[in-house]
Design a protein around this nucleic acid. Structure first.
Lengths: 360, 360
DNA sequence: AGCGCGATCTGAAACGATTCAGGAACTCCT
DNA sequence: AGGAGTTCCTGAATCGTTTCAGATCGCGCT
């Protein structure tokens, strides 16, 4: 099986030309300046066994004098670069920011440095990002809400410690952290049904060019929606709209739905970005959440802003990020068996779903 | 002068122990499998001169068979890692997301891969982030709204191509991209004065533990505010509140100001995150922008959301990001003289500053 | 004196790529 | 036929670090 897909970064321009950094001090320079061997300097750097105080002193002085810093690339040639990589699907999502802060918080207490590789939203970009980190010999990778195929991720995980955050497929090769999307979605639906809504429309994420998976959070939310509707005897009102989970596409898709006959009385948007688009579509038509109830998912920071006031599901991204970093470090440390954690979400009820008329 | 400050990452645990990845194919494996020399494989990889079709074919087959990928670390030992680093002050700011998207957009058309290093908001974290990238031998660095001392950045720039985005100090050693904060602030103030406001309060950023600089965007915005107030004969109404540029600290600081005697009739917040906090503080007191006008800065994506409707200054972060990546690539390519670009902002007037009573 | 033993230090061999200076084979021209 | 020029390929040096297998030294003990 071919694991890696993108080789576009292999070929490149004349590498030497850009070497630059002519004057950077090396370990040899330090050794010469301190009048000791290269190996000695290395030991001082790493606080290794068998260094006299006198030598440590001399070496440290030379290091300071030359502004020497070891190069991670050379270090990585043997041993480790002490780096972990995080792949993010796009910038600017509040949920992801929370997760990243959690990851950073945990890594601060370890010797690992975090670097991020953006996957953009382009097709294949996620593969490229993972490969870029792999090529840079990071010690482990956290992938957030990846779109890549599970078997591919599994193949990668065979070679390098991997933690996946946000998707529901479980592998024996890597750890997973997920919010309980089914439970969260049931909370939302129960809330809306309780308030008497029947024509509830669901807004789900449309993966551009990526094979539909049943394992993404959005797929789970969507199927719980449909199942709940059927159980409530509302099969005929089931309506799922697909648009990318961003404000603008959601606005357009929802706008079209509102202009059709029999508009919904409530909208369960698959995440908060999409919900913001829904709110905008309402506003464009002179409607508010007093006319149509709206709920989101993720409890982004602005959900509780007075001008928004969006009912949403809190996933505690910070904690999920923390845990995924912790699991990754464990795995780098040698753990082999897979851990799968599910974090319980809570529904945060706000005005966007409680002002609408309850009887339709 | 000692350039580098943080050596905490030098010492580390037994590196070898974590080497992992036992079975990864090397260029030698490929050479053996294809029955050619190591140098030949390298040439195929880099599309270099002097490779027969037959050999290219054989080598490519071997590469595919072994799932071989060159290691960037080894590559970086000679030549370049084809990587540029971006230092971001924190996650989750819309303006920064825009900038990053711009950077990514430009780099897509180059052989460079982008990696991000977060500086958090902890003191010294920015230094660590820059050093982490430097140690990883990136080919160049973009620092966004850095808090580091200019002379330190200059010392770094002496060794590695650097572009600074957002701060106003200019160096002969590195390029800078800034929005014209003075012009933008004048637009805001002219707008508020024109609408008859006199008691205008300014909300500026409080750097925690970092020496005040006159060169940050916030310092410029603040001083233009004061200057404009004086020119308008409103010296007695000058009031500057300092809080971190995030929603929560801004909310608290503004709340306190509102509860004092003679509250402002308008607030010029130094950025949108802070402005959101101001809006929240208003809402907590049962006030709206019909009572007190509010303006922000950066034109974050939600500024034009119907529930927010915030007057703000658009800086076109995407374009600024694009340009900074372009400048960095030029500089990596050999340019020596410094380029300093100023981007013109535009005022976007929305409801938050036009609904308040104009005569006070 | 001879032995064993820590403690310190060093030389040299990795690590995985790139690149340079040729060598071998082929073509072309006179 | 012989030299010149191309094309294709290889061996070996190189990059900056870690680490392993000794070398050296001083010291206490028998």
């Amino acid at each position: 099986m071919t694991i890696f897909v993108d080789r576009s970064t292999f070929s490149c321009i004349d590498l030497q030309k850009f070497s630059a950094e002519p004057g950077r001090a090396t370990i040899d320079d330090v050794a010469r300046a301190a009048g000791v061997s290269r190996a000695a300097v290395s030991k001082v750097l790493r606080d290794a066994y068998g260094v006299s105080d006198a030598m440590r002193e001399r070496v440290n002085r030379a290091i300071a004098e030359l502004d020497y810093r070891p190069r991670v690339a050379a270090r990585a040639m043997r041993g480790s670069a002490l780096t972990v990589g995080v792949v993010i699907p796009h910038f600017g999502s509040y949920f992801i920011s929370d997760v990243l802060e959690g990851v950073a918080a945990h890594l601060r207490e370890t010797p690992y440095q975090m670097i991020l590789a953006p996957a953009d939203d382009e097709y294949r970009a996620g593969y490229r990002a993972v490969e870029a980190l792999y090529d840079r010999q990071v010690d482990g990778i956290v992938v957030i809400a990846p779109l890549e195929r599970p078997d591919w991720l599994e193949a990668v995980a065979r070679r390098i410690p991997l933690v996946q955050l946000g998707r529901h497929d479980q592998s024996q090769r890597y750890d997973t952290i997920v919010g309980d999307d089914a439970a969260g979605s049931r909370l939302v639906m129960a809330h809306l049904l309780e308030r008497g809504h029947q024509r509830i429309t669901h807004l789900t994420h449309l993966d551009r060019g990526v094979p539909r998976s049943t394992l993404t959070p959005q797929a789970t939310r969507s199927s719980v929606y449909q199942q709940t509707m059927r159980q409530a005897g509302l099969s005929r009102h089931i309506r799922v709209i697909a648009a990318r989970f961003e404000e603008e596409p959601a606005r357009r898709a929802m706008g079209a739905a509102l202009d059709r006959a029999e508009p919904p009385t409530a909208v369960f948007a698959g995440n908060d970005d999409a919900a913001l688009g829904v709110l905008r579509a309402l506003a464009e038509r002179g409607l508010t959440t007093e006319d149509i109830a709206v709920t989101g998912y993720d409890d982004a920071r602005l959900a509780d802003h007075p001008g928004i006031n969006l009912t949403s599901v809190n996933q505690n991204g910070h904690e999920m990020g923390r845990r995924s970093a912790a699991l990754l470090v464990e795995r780098i440390g040698g753990r082999r068996d897979a851990v799968h954690e599910t974090h319980e979400p809570r529904l945060i009820v706000r005005g966007s779903s409680t002002r609408a008329d309850q009887r339709r």
